[in-house]
Design a protein around this nucleic acid. Sequence first.
DNA 1: TACACATTATTTTTT
DNA 2: ATAATGTGTA
Length: 738
Amino acid sequence: MTKSPTMDDAPYLSGLNPAQREAVETINDPVLVLAGAGTGKTRVLTTRLAHILQTGHAFPGEILAVTFTNKAAQEMKERVSHLMGGAPVEGWWLGTFHALATRMLRRHAELVGLGSNFTIIDPDDQARLLKQLMESAGIDHKKWAPRAMAAMIDRFKDRGRRPTDLSADEGGEAAGGKLVALYAQYQSRLKTLNACDFGDLLLHMITILRDPQNADLLAEYRRRFRYILVDEYQDTNVAQYMWLRLLAQGNGRNGENNICCVGDDDQSIYGWRGAEVGNILKFETDFPGAKIIRLEENYRSTAHILSAANGVIGHNADRLGKNLFTDGDQGEKLIVRGLWDGEAEARWIGEEIEQLQHRGWSLDRIAVLVRAGFQTREFEERFIQLGLAYKVIGGPRFYERMEIRDALAYLRVTAQPVDDLALERIINLPRRGIGDATVQTLYAYARNKGISLHSAIHELCETDEMRPKVRETLLRLAGDFARWRSLIPTMKHTELASMILDESGYSAMWQASKDADAPGRLENLKELVAAMDEFESLPAFLEHIALVMESRDDQYQASISIMTLHGAKGLEFDAVFLPGWEEGLFPSQRSMDENGLRGLEEERRLAYVGITRARQRAFISFAANRRMYGNWINAVPSRFVDELPKDHIETQSDSGLYGAGRSAHWDSSGVQAAQRRADNHDRRTINAHGETLSRGDRVNHDKFGDGTIIHIDSHKLDIAFDRGGKKRVMDSFVSKID
DNA sequence: TACACATTATTTTTT
DNA sequence: ATAATGTGTA
């Protein structure tokens, strides 16, 4: 029999290795793909989708594809379209757990007592709401930080547990032993506000789909989604698992469970957020007859990098175990270097990057991956000095800026009058004479009657409860919002937004401000309005920003990426710098304190993720001294440094800083030598006018007048000015007095 | 009510 | 060290 021009020859299948091919072609029944770092996971995922569509097993509308981040969803969309010949694939449900759950929940919100136009509140609102509730319940919010309470409630939600599923003592000591009660109040308050937090999006959907009364609904979804695909399965939490499980029971045409989960237990790094590695470890039990396919051939990294990564992760006990291998080159050994302090570390990394650059490497190929966000600062400062272009990924985001959040609050109240949290934010912004006292009165009334702030304003303004002036202001504000709201159907939403910002006086507030960053904020407000243009309506825009907290990054320039290890998951670079490998920082003390061995193993997986991001070069460094909370601490090299297999690393040390591990201790004379060098380094600087400046020199500054240099820190000078005290200035702004 | 000053925690990681 | 909070005074 001659082969028909079928799938065997389909171009998209060529070039897959046997394991990959099996993962693509096994489309019915549960499949777990254990995909090690760099083994072509995304390729398998997208090819599998294309395969299901091309072979006519399903229409796009019958596919549910879940990703962990919005970026991954976007990438999958593009790549599948590409495989399908370039035409965009329409009609499938592709997105993050939260985005997909939101989409479902909007259809059935009334089943959990919400309106389909519910608001999605962010962690900031969440904490403020909890703080209010704690105040009225007499819980000390200084002892029990609202944010910490929010985190505990989130953990309940991650496990699919509602207040009614908990016994009162399950909150432990938290919130004075009242955590579960607080959780219950919080949920009821959210319902009044017609709002959900992130966790609710899934939790409510589980509640709905589990309810026997909605059995037909569940059956409909099962019929609808014939194929379910899940990326980053190792990072799913119990609630997400339950949602998937509900949808995947007998969803196939012949009643089979068609779910394909892709993940890597060695890259599970979100345990602190409720992710359950257990989900991936017990997949076989949960989905009987599941096929497990391992992808172990790595196409990304050199053999040295791979061996180093394997060596580190090999110290973890709790893993399914994989054996990554490569056909590729040995490449160069990893560089491991100890330095005097964080600044020296940043200096060294800057030099290495410049060298790579001289060898023709584009900065795009290079990343600095840190453990925690605050570590980025040192590198930013250094890169600015060197004139190296960089971008901090995942740093403070556009939609988190104060002025943007204020503006959004106006838009939210306009779209949704019962959005108390938004209203509270701007009720006296710009200042209109409604102070804390008034807000408290309103809240007390609202809570007592179980109504929204918005309704409370209307009711209280009927009475003489408030002073005439306040009453007038409140009524005018409420009137403004009513008017803006009435314009939603007819006016273009971008125009409406500008109008609201103008008429509310919010723009004027910044125009009048003498604050140095006021012009920047006005710029951002304009950008916000411009960004709205891409959306159909005000609600569509508000939903987008609730779920996608990032703004599109325009302005492409080759630049170094600086980001956290978590942010780097799923990415790869030719050269990767991994600074700050010190005990307490990485592995993080907190992680070990709170979760013991489990925490440590998660940290180690983070190290594994970091190393495996590198294609060609990896540079690991640690400092002997680091500034923490404003004072200096002596740092010990991370245990992970010791765990790097010696054959695959090249240990470099500043003279005097011996060894790459605790086994080879810092020798004290060397430390002193380094101290002397550091002192020398910081003893003088040459400013832009070519003057050599030393400690003790008398200098003049245009703005601050005359003073004496008391400390030199690279090009930054600490100067005691004769008038105005101690200031830190750049050396180019002073001149020497002879 | 608003601002100046003092005190305090904060540094994981994010949909 | 810094930012965000809370306290006291105008």
